[in-house]
Design a protein around this nucleic acid. Sequence first.
RNA 1: GACCCCAUCGUCUAGUCCGGCCUAGGACAAUGGCCCUUCAAGCCAUGAACACCGGUUCGAAUCCGGUUGGGGUCGCCA
Length: 480
Amino acid sequence: MTVRVRIAPSPTGDPHVGTAYIALFNYVFAKRHGGQFILRIEDTDRTRSTPESEAAILRALRWVGLSWDEGPDVGGPHGPYRQSERADIYRREVANLVATGASYRCFCTAERLDKLRAEQKGKSNFMGYDGHCRGLDPAVSDARAAAGEPFVVRLAMPKTGETIVVDRLRGEVRFENTQIDDQILLKTDGFPTYHLANVVDDHLMGITHVIRAEEWLTSTPKHVVLYSAFGWTAPEWIHMPLLRNADKSKISKRKNPVSLDYYRAAGFLPEALLNFLGTMGWSIAGDREKFTLQEMIDAFSFDRIRLGGPVFDLVKLSAMNADYLRALDDDGVVARLRQWRLADDYLRSLVPLVRKRIQRLDEFVPLTEFFFSGDVDHAPWLKELVPAHRTATEVSECLLGLVEALDAQRDFSPPALEAMARAFAEKSAWDVKELFMLMRLAATARKATPPLFETLSVLGRDMTRRRLRLCADFLKKSKP
RNA sequence: GACCCCAUCGUCUAGUCCGGCCUAGGACAAUGGCCCUUCAAGCCAUGAACACCGGUUCGAAUCCGGUUGGGGUCGCCA
């Protein structure tokens, strides 16, 4: 049996460092055993998935140095590799399940479910669907569906006994069936949920090992039941520990940069990032922490994974990055600088912003310095950041609000940014002039810069968000 | 709250499976020093952990039980 594994990101946002982490272990395991590593796009959330996000994820994964044997861009014998293009497959498979009674239509409204949840909250030990439509007469169900009434399809979980998940890293994990609710498999819009699509695709694509994050562990019994309902052999499960913030909570953008694009923009070397991720929960040897991708492949074994959630420490990553940088010769560093920012493309995007502001070429570098630095120091601007009529907390909150707005802002062109900022000003009752200066100071640590939105546009989403957040943190600490 | 997972220096980890080699090793960070016109880098040194309580055993970081702590999940998101 040849090993086939996959990484299955959802294109609903920035390329996540956790995706690279899990992709790395999948990739390494596949290569260790001469198997295949597949990339599948899980875009069944029609409201949140975007082609831009998909492209960004592919680009980021490539940047980090991982490549896949099959995927939406490279094709393969088990395509399509984009779940939105496989909708008919899921509908076909789920129809079989309804026919055998392993799943059923549910006509409950969102309102009813909300009410149910509210009632259960705090009172009941069981949280989840109450099986209201489970006993519906199939003839009635058929008639209501035929009449055009919207419905979802749910998995009929066994009501007794337990489901055992065999996890490669933990052994048998047991779940009482009574506490697992009837998972929705097919949504009202006809698209599958993760649980269905994931099982169907893993089976159809011949996936042998599912290496994914620990957050999936508690929904795995549903997948076990699904496999058996289909009559399919389940893959082997391997749930990796979750990357953590410094406070041990699951890594999040509020407490850590999580976008791979940030790490690229901040000048981390992809091989250093990969090496660092390889030390998260895994070790190559007791006294060794530097290794190449190939060395990791050669040495890889699940036996060397520990399950405590590793804290993603930027300081340690930076130290490792420094090691890689020092190992490069001078030409190597030059090459990396060019790949990073000192490239014609980037300089060209800067020139329109400053050409009228310089009289001599030697003014270019000082004027554009903040485009080339990572984190900036806001300390000298405390007075300007927090004018007399504002409190530090107030300004900090405003910045955090902006970061949130920026998170959602896919279009980073100057006009789009300006529209966003003006809308934000209106909504938050901040004076436009004041808000714009705040953004300028936070993003650049300067009072005088090229036009704000052109500047932010070139600076990019990741660096802009990082600096605003840093500024908000600084203010929060400075004067509570 | 219910269920599930986890538990070695501040952090990443070795050691845990097959108990003695562990007065617990390495790395990052911290501190002190050396080097040096400066700053880095480099080198040397120091402090720093087996969560707790029981049990098994001649012997436990290692095995068992409990407690505590942390995390995750309970979405027509993945």
